[in-house]
Design a protein around this nucleic acid. Structure first.
Lengths: 175, 175
DNA sequence: TAGCCTCGGTTCGTTCACCGAACTGAGAGG
DNA sequence: CCTCTCAGTTCGGTGAACGAACCGAGGCTA
């Protein structure tokens, strides 16, 4: 979606945003980055995405300044992908979309809930904390909890297991 | 994206939402619906979308309960596509994404601003009205205004012309 | 009644992105 | 030297998007 035949006729900021973030898989990669996924292999295992597509999406996101690549060890050389501030701002899109999908297309109870780390209250679809009145709770103050709708046979990849294990603060590394 | 090879492994509400709303063009169709576009031909002219793709997207959105089809005249029989409540709730995704794109990838000034109809103040990226303190301004209370960044050679299709002509309340028909 | 127009699609051949399986290469570690 | 892991790249096959042409229902005009 990004190159070649894009939305160039639409001189609208929504169209420009969608050129970057509207491609298949892209928003799920960004969601995983909020969950603390940072390495190629972990995105791969958690998303069941073709390897070539993942490599392409990561490169596009880095180029767009949504992720940044960071060398976290030298031997062997390994990089991790971290959300930039620009990427972190996408929480205000991802979270409402998640809640919208949950309200209208959920099959049973939610699999995951998001709570205000400071007070433990579930955050509303507009990112407000009903308890402490905090509006626009930033993702760094959000804790992901396993929800009541967790399936009988949950996924066994390391990322899914770690996410189930215990409440986890967004943006913090999973491992 | 919707059928066949979908995100079925991802039992996450974001993935389910993206199966519907994450396909190419879909969110732009919904945006146009907020602008008051209602007829096949108007979507077509404003979006420069292949006819077959538009027909497919409209059918998918109707099936998902995001748009509803409404017969507005009988001879000749003509239908219009209107946002349902479920569709209207997508404003909380579309508006933040638009503002995010504008902040980070805009070329100059915004083409369009969104004001609180009650007080005329521009609505912030989290859908709050800074003037009257209204949080979560619903799209029906939002007026679209032509912004300062309007290009020298703007589009000449009827929808673009009507949108430029005068401030326009979201969800109200354009014509 | 014939001819033409509009609207809302469908059809069809080409192009392009996605898919998944196999392969590659750098760098441990034994 | 052999094997393993990690992070990709390569490649043949398939499905979706593209755009131009076609179609049919139902006016309008004469």
């Amino acid at each position: 979606m990004a190159l070649g035949k894009n939305y160039e006729g639409q001189n609208c900021s929504l169209a420009r945003a969608l050129e970057l973030v509207g491609e298949r898989w892209t928003l799920l990669v960004v969601r995983d980055a909020f969950y603390g996924v940072r390495r190629y292999g972990d995105f791969l295992a958690h998303l069941d995405i073709p390897r070539a597509v993942l490599a392409d999406r990561l490169a596009t996101l880095v180029e767009a300044g949504i992720l940044q690549r960071h060398r976290y060890q030298n031997s062997p050389p390994r990089d991790e992908y971290l959300l930039t501030d620009r990427g972190i701002e996408l929480w205000s899109v991802i979270y409402p979309l998640m809640r919208w999908g949950e309200r209208h297309f959920a099959t049973g109870e939610p699999l995951r809930t998001f709570r205000h780390a400071a007070c433990g209250t579930e955050i509303d679809p507009a990112s407000r904390c009903p308890a402490c009145g905090h509006v626009d709770v930033p993702p760094g103050d959000v804790e992901s909890h396993t929800g009541p709708g967790i399936p009988a046979q949950p996924r066994q990849d390391p990322v899914s297991v770690a996410l189930r294990q215990h409440p986890h603060r967004l943006l913090q590394p999973l491992f």
